[in-house]
Amino acid sequence: MVKLIARVIVTPKPVVNDPQGNTVKAGLHRLGFAEVADVRIGKYIELQLEADDEVGARRRVAEMCQKLLANHVIEDVRFLLDEAETKVTSG
């Protein structure tokens, strides 16, 4: 078994208007960040899981995205799979 972290990113589909993103873009422009072409605001979901292997874990996380984590009418979803982090404590 391997311990993994899935980092799931959910964003509004391009066809969906994102008023939050538009507001933040306008804010960034007002602050002088003229280079910002677009802002989309979504969700970041972190899952800790155990799996036999990475391929199996990818299939399972994809299924979770499909069934619950995103609404496919309005959202796009993607994820990154990492080995679980090891926290180093001092002393």
């Binding site: 509004p12 969906v16 208007n17 008023p19 939050q20 507001t23 609404n71 009418v73 309005i74």
Partner: peptide
């Protein structure tokens, strides 16, 4: 009902935020 798929579409945040 939209989440179940009994009705089509979805309800987004109000455009006025």
């Amino acid at each position: 009902l939209c989440e179940t798929g009994l009705l089509p579409g979805a309800l987004l945040r109000n455009d006025v935020c």
